[in-house]
Computed example of a mutant assay.
Amino acid sequence: MTELAVLDFETTGLVPGQDEVLQVAVVDETGAVLMNEYCRPQRHTAWADAQKVNGIAPQDVCGKSPFEALVPRLQEILSGARRVVAYNDGFEKAFLDAYGIPSRGLRWGEDPMAAFAQQMGGQKRSLSAVASFFGYEFEAHDALADVRATLYL
């Protein structure tokens, strides 16, 4: 059992059950990569708005497995963690639920976004902004870079 699993998704959009996972990354408490996979959507052939944010183009994922094929492995990783953490964890929870991984069955740690907002008077800030506040610079919206930044926080 791993102590911590830090999770992040990059997706075709923001609507769980409608939009799909394009990249999933998980690291443990030491920063070791437990999963970093790009995924081919089953229902979407283009996602221009999301592509502007995450830089993942259809040709980047055309030969990849669909996220559904990774669900059993991801569920095993997350279920085997003492704590699961994600920045703005409501987003990841909603996508997990949409893909049949019950988020309520996982042991969640505190959401770093919520913790920072509580300390700073309630204003929620992006992962990039909070990481920068603590002196950590990275290229946001790559799932692996995002989980590493979240682990740092």
Rank of each mutant, 00 (worst) to 15 (best):
A5L: 07
V6A: 08
L7S: 05
D8M: 03
E10N: 03
T11R: 07
T12W: 08
P16N: 12
G17K: 14
L22V: 14
L22T: 13
V24H: 10
V24T: 13
V26L: 02
V27W: 09
V27N: 05
E29Y: 10
E29W: 14
T30M: 12
V33W: 14
C39R: 07
R40I: 00
R43Q: 11
R43S: 11
R43M: 08
H44D: 05
H44N: 10
H44V: 05
T45W: 12
T45F: 12
T45D: 10
T45I: 13
A46W: 08
A48D: 10
A48T: 09
Q51A: 08
K52S: 06
G55V: 02
I56T: 01
P58E: 03
P58L: 03
D60Q: 01
C62F: 15
S65I: 00
P66C: 09
P66T: 09
L70I: 05
P72M: 01
L74Y: 11
L74A: 07
Q75T: 10
Q75H: 12
E76T: 13
I77A: 11
L78T: 12
S79A: 15
S79G: 15
A81Y: 11
R82E: 12
R82Q: 13
V84L: 12
V84R: 14
V85C: 06
V85Q: 04
Y87G: 00
N88K: 03
N88W: 04
D89I: 04
D89H: 13
D97W: 07
D97K: 06
Y99T: 11
Y99W: 15
P102N: 12
G105M: 13
W108N: 06
G109H: 05
P112A: 00
P112Q: 00
P112M: 00
M113N: 00
M113I: 01
A114I: 03
A115H: 01
F116N: 00
Q119Y: 04
S128R: 00
A129G: 03
A129C: 06
A131K: 02
F133C: 04
E139W: 04
H141F: 01
D142V: 03
A143R: 11
L144A: 10
A145H: 15
D146W: 03
V147I: 14
V147L: 14
T150E: 06
L151M: 11
L153H: 02
